[in-house]
Design a protein around this nucleic acid. Structure first.
Lengths: 343, 343
DNA sequence: TTGAAAGCGCTAACAA
DNA sequence: TTGTTAGCGCTTTCAA
């Protein structure tokens, strides 16, 4: 293994100069730098992160704490975050949270405390008070995504706003009898997102039409959305006005709604309009109207915020971009699954 | 930051004993061990991976080299691998490969050489000779997934067999005129999987029916599969026998085929049978017959193999499980998208 | 702008 | 079974 001494010898300088030249920290003459870079290149030398991190206290790595690695939203956020981190020369360490309580605890009490990372991104995970405390005790930058977190810097999407925009779209194009597919309280582990959205749908409809909204849980899967839609359309009493539009809390559930409509011989959008929330790539395939929340960009932004905290000097000045924006942007994407209801 | 000295003092032993007790390496009396564990627990001490890895040469981390973090197959493999690694107390470091050639090169020339991991898993990535050489030069266990790789231990699925099983299923239930949705040569970057499967479909059909197979590329997306199916059914000359069954190289493309059938007013499976390859969760929703290749288990196995290499003593003896099985298992899952063709 | 040298916090050889 | 101690390969003061 070629070491810093080899490089120093070849470049005819001290190891201190090599270190300074390669890290960019501290003064080095242009001539020295050039010879060091050349020597390092010729020898194929790469700084050992083991030794470097012990001596400097910096690891050059950022951790991502993620539940459900194999679900679209999370893997997309992960892709965005890791892209930005790699661009800046950082490595990415993954801490995946499972349903097992012991394993989860172990992440906070042990794994995260091994000094392997310089900063952390918590992806859409509601934290217990002890967990938040554990993160703060690490003494490193932590950015939480997905919901407002009083004790941590958080990057949040306006969950209620998202649901309100989707609902408003249906109302704008003429719908008055709207059904909602969300999730039960068991999904409230993540920042009460289901209940926030549910309330927003209800309020939006109530404010504009005075009508009542029927809710059905769909547990964030295509199949759940399909079943929920069937329940929504079946359980209507004969004298109740027919539901003409459905708001689903995720695109996957909305796709389930499209399948259910097909199952029942209903034509979308003329018999039934459906709008989702997410910006899932499958939405395009199905012509699904949705409110895009830009998952990949969320990951990139979270990464950028951690990087800014790690090197405030390199961060853009505050007037160039909000350091932590109050709320992330979302956009209504109208495709073919929504239209005015039939008279 | 509480250090090993604090623990040693509190437990009334030397730092060497603390190290031995906590790592499980080297002899420690039961009494000493107990006092060390207690002291460490009381102080909330966790070994610094920085210092530990510099001194021992072990990092306690395994790297995963992955393209396309946000695609189902890769994120599922990642979930499986990271699960097994965490179970064994290892951290996971992510190296994501992008289409950018400079960034890709940088992973092999720099990122992987920082001594941050003890072993590596390469997920379905065809490697250039220089890249393979770079990995071997790292001097650590490397397990490659997805295709036979002459220079690396590899965990492979029988790509041709997978396609043959799918094709055989259609033939077994009576189909004679079969179409195939694969991918163009531009997807051959990953171990020639598309061409292997294409050849297998062709040979299976030829051997059993003597018929000719029409191929259309679908680029592994739902939309691509849908378009390919339309082409497949449109371009048939009037006198050619009607295609009654379609083999798709991925479940996502197969779902596209289902959508195309629906577009054209064809009923699946009576007018058209469709079989995919993967075991994608959406397949269940669509009632898709498929050949499951157990992506999550592939990830878990790859992780287990790296762990076995890192600690041969802890590995199961060879007669209990193949250390590197020749081929991973796959299973035909028959659902509702295939049936005998109409007479 | 440079180099000498003292650690960073732990592990492992060695001696007891 | 235990403790002493010399590193592991860098970074960073400090003095020049």
């Amino acid at each position: 293994m070629v070491s810093i001494d080899d490089v120093a010898r070849r470049a005819g300088v001290s190891t201190a100069t090599v270190s300074r030249a390669l890290s960019g920290r501290g003064p080095v003459s242009a001539a020295s730098r050039e010879r060091v870079l050349l020597a390092a290149d010729e020898l194929g030398y790469v700084v050992s992160s083991r030794a470097s991190s012990l001596a400097s206290g910096r690891t050059g790595s950022v951790g991502l704490i993620v539940p459900y690695l194999d679900r679209w939203f999370f893997s997309t956020v992960l892709a965005g975050a890791s892209y930005t981190l790699m661009q800046h020369g950082f490595d990415v360490t993954l801490y995946s949270i499972t349903d097992n309580a012991d394993e989860r605890r172990n992440v906070f009490t042990h794994a995260l405390r091994r000094q392997r990372v310089d900063g952390l991104i918590v992806v859409s995970l509601e934290l217990a008070a002890t967990e938040t405390a554990a993160l703060r005790a690490l003494g490193m930058p932590v950015v939480a995504m997905g919901g407002k977190h009083p004790q941590l810097e958080s990057l949040t999407v306006d969950q209620a706003g998202l649901a309100a925009v989707a609902t408003q779209h249906l109302i704008d194009i003429g719908h008055r009898h709207i059904g909602h597919i969300g999730a039960g309280a068991e999904f409230d582990t993540d920042f009460q997102i289901p209940s926030q959205r549910r309330a927003a749908v209800e309020e939006t409809v109530a404010a504009c039409t005075g009508a009542h909204v029927v809710h059905e849980p769909g547990d964030f899967t295509v199949d759940g959305g399909r079943a929920a839609t069937h329940r929504l359309l079946e359980t209507q009493s004969p004298e109740a006005p027919r539901i003409t539009g459905i708001v689903a809390d995720s695109d996957e559930m909305a796709i389930g709604a499209l399948l259910a409509a097909n199952d029942r011989g209903l034509h979308v959008p003329t018999d039934l309009s459906v709008i989702g929330i997410d910006g899932h790539p499958l939405g395009e395939v199905f012509g699904l109207t949705t409110v895009d929340q830009f998952a990949r960009q969320q990951g990139m932004q979270a990464a950028q915020h951690v990087l800014d905290r790690l090197d405030p000097a390199a961060a853009l000045p505050p007037h160039c971009h909000e350091r932590i924006p109050e709320l992330l942007p979302t956009t209504l994407v109208v495709r073919q699954s929504t239209t005015a209801p039939r008279q």
